[in-house]
């Protein structure tokens, strides 16, 4: 799980072009949206694409994203339980 969380942080920085953010700036339980990393709605869509492309998870209901994308911790748990690749 630790390796997966590290991988997620690296992917998020790369995919969302967070040039000013380092791996150590992202704590496992920090909120990804709002006051945390300050991601926006386009970033949320990009994360949905990433789940599909890299982990074979298709989010049928985008509202699920609110819970799944709360933090690196919640993303990691969801991917661990639902990944198909």
């Amino acid at each position: 799980m630790e390796a997966l969380k590290q991988e997620l942080k690296e992917k998020i920085i790369a995919v969302l072009n967070l040039e000013d953010i380092n791996l150590e700036d992202i704590n496992d339980n920090d909120p990804l949206f709002g006051d945390g990393l300050g991601l926006d709605s386009i970033d949320a869509l990009e994360l949905i694409v990433m789940l599909d492309k890299d982990y074979g998870i298709k989010l049928v209901d985008p509202k699920e994203g609110k819970v799944i994308f709360q933090s690196i911790e919640t993303m990691g748990n969801y991917i661990k339980e639902n990944r198909t690749k």
Binding site: N17, D43, E46, V49, K53
Partner: peptide, 9 residues
């Protein structure tokens, strides 16, 4: 086939 929303906008 993975259209990128961040590119599309």
């Amino acid at each position: 086939y993975y259209p990128s929303p961040a590119v599309f906008v």
